[in-house]
Design a protein around this nucleic acid. Structure first.
Length: 494
RNA sequence: GCAGCUGUAGCUCAGUUGGUUAGAGCGUCGGAUUGUGGAUCCGAAGGUCCCUGGUUCGAGACCAGGCAGCUGUACCA
């Protein structure tokens, strides 16, 4: 290997913002998504898969231009020069699907989807350019009962996943109420669009910067610890007070919060409509037995800035846990959604009321993992049958077959190395047991079974090499006919 | 994008005011043991000190400019 050829080799490395997912997490996420699926199915939602790639214009993204070919979304041109993009959420493809199949679908259409989405953005801690979402949507119903159902369904899902009542909360708000408050402080109208956006962004940051930070952002602006300055919305002090008061209007009960909101929106028609929708949802929550400990009305929820037109909601995990470094971690939001009444209209021209919710699978999974709810490490590694005698591979193959028929995960060593390497292999695999049958055992019609975990524990106490070598720790012989029985017993002892 | 911090072995990191041949732990590989992983002992391999230029008798260290990473922040349909 010359230096030259070495330089020409590509470096083995994952792309920035992407990651490999190991066996434990693959199994754990599968288990978790199965639970979510069961809840959604129980609520009557139908599964759907949409492609990873859509025409860029169908995703509602501006066509890439020469200056910004991939801003936020991974895009490329097809043979016919049409722009294609990797999906960046599961809602835009759903809107396309519904618009394309409207006649064939029942109204309302109730569906769920799960899968990878991609965003071409700067990755951060716990933030990747590929991640998994699990969505449910009701398309074609304007009723707040459809929104209320989403909230209750996510609450149920959390409990089915082992998150105790009180450790999560659904926070619900309504964009119309926010609009009403903005009207009341005189920033309505198209000329104030930019300022309203800044206000919404400021409110969205309550969990990170607290009320004081939000007030700074509503007013002049805020400087972060690195010295970077963020320009604020430059509201008048009285308006800052009013918005801050709104954000802080959450009361212990839904009824009390609604009263405060009604007062804050004044006589704004839109604001009142929002409060009325929240009242209807609140009544449904109460009727279905979803208490204040599960679903709250919280005016601080705004959910990004995008397409939401009515109720918005967010599921927040409230407990804390310690990560590997022993630091306290707050989980925050693991999912959310809301009403979007304009998305299908982009294709058909007709307004189709819709509401949906999205769970961040990867984020929820890391939360469950820190809580010890993922059952990682519960899948037992296979029993390894060593190949002592190459000519007798058929015999070893028969042994693993017998074990598998008995429901025991087992494999024959398929490498080409000697016994020592085979032991190392089994060790690295975390195998519970190895099965050994060399010439000596064969002659006696026996097999040796070695308990690797027990062996490792006993080895800790061995002081010198002679003992170590002699000990042949944690292994025993049984008649060949008793292989399954003995393996079963040894596994049961663990 | 903006700001701060950091780039030395596969990993985690030492490396004195600028001074000879750049170190440790862990890991890897080999031996003690050609039928035994894991304890123990012995040994070995492994380096573009991020890159380019500059200062200097001399740079891993100092300076400038790049690049990369981390963290925060902005944007985020």
């Amino acid at each position: 290997m010359s230096a030259k050829t070495k330089q020409q080799r590509p470096k083995a490395r994952v792309a920035k913002g992407f990651r490999d997912i190991g066996p434990e997490e693959v199994r754990g996420v599968k288990r978790m998504t199965r639970v979510i699926e069961e809840v959604y199915e129980a609520y009557g939602f139908e599964p759907l898969e949409v492609p990873f790639i859509e025409y860029t214009d169908a995703l509602g993204k501006f066509l890439p231009d020469q200056d910004r070919p991939n801003e936020g979304v991974f895009s490329f041109q097809d043979d016919d020069e049409q722009w294609l993009s990797l999906r960046y959420d599961l809602t835009a493809p759903l809107a396309r699907y519904v618009a394309e199949n409207q006649q064939a679908l029942p109204t309302p259409y109730r569906g769920y989807r799960q899968g990878w989405v991609f965003r071409n953005e700067k990755p951060g801690p716990g933030r990747f350019r590929q991640f998994m979402q699990f969505d449910a949507d009701t398309v074609g119903s304007a009723s707040p009962s459809a929104d209320a159902e989403m909230c209750m369904m996510v609450a149920d899902t959390m409990e089915k996943l082992g998150i105790a009542r009180g450790s999560y909360v659904m926070r619900v708000n309504n964009r119309k109420v926010l609009d009403g408050v903005l009207e009341a402080i005189g920033v309505a109208g198209p000329e104030n669009e930019a300022r309203r956006m800044t206000v919404l962004r400021a409110i969205d940051k309550l969990d990170r910067f607290g009320v004081a930070g939000v007030r700074e952002l509503l007013g002049k602006g805020r400087k972060d610890e690195s010295g970077d300055f963020t320009k604020g919305a430059e509201l008048e002090p009285a308006a800052v007070d009013r918005v801050a008061g709104f954000v802080d209007a959450g009361a212990p009960t839904r009824g009390e919060t609604l009263k405060r909101l009604a007062a804050l929106v004044g006589d704004s028609e839109r604001g009142r409509a929002g409060v009325a929708e929240l009242e209807e949802m609140s009544t449904l929550f109460a009727a279905a037995g979803y208490g204040e400990d599960r679903i709250k009305i919280d005016p601080a929820v705004v959910r990004g800035l995008g397409y939401y037109t009515g109720p918005v909601f967010e599921c927040e995990l409230q407990m804390e846990a310690r990560n590997e470094e022993g630091q306290l971690v707050r989980f925050g939001s693991v999912g959310g959604g809301g009403r979007y009444d304009d998305l299908v209209a982009r294709f058909t021209g007709q307004q189709v009321p819709a509401t949906g919710v999205s769970i961040g699978v990867s984020r929820l999974y890391s939360a469950l993992k820190l809580l010890g709810q993922t059952e990682e490490g519960k899948t037992l590694a296979p029993v390894v049958v060593l190949v002592m005698d190459r000519e007798r591979i058929g015999d070893y193959q028969r042994m693993v077959g017998t074990l598998r028929e008995a429901g025991i995960r087992a494999e024959m060593y398929v490498g080409t190395s000697g016994m020592k390497a085979q032991m190392k292999y089994a060790d690295k695999r975390s195998s519970p047991l190895v099965v050994i049958q060399g010439g000596d055992e064969k002659a006696k019609g026996e097999v040796q079974i070695k308990d690797l975990q027990l062996g490792a524990e006993l080895a800790g106490g061995v002081e010198n090499r002679a003992d170590y070598k002699e000990a042949r720790l944690a292994q025993f012989s049984v008649p060949e006919a008793d292989l399954v029985k003995a393996v079963r017993e040894a596994l049961a002892r663990r």
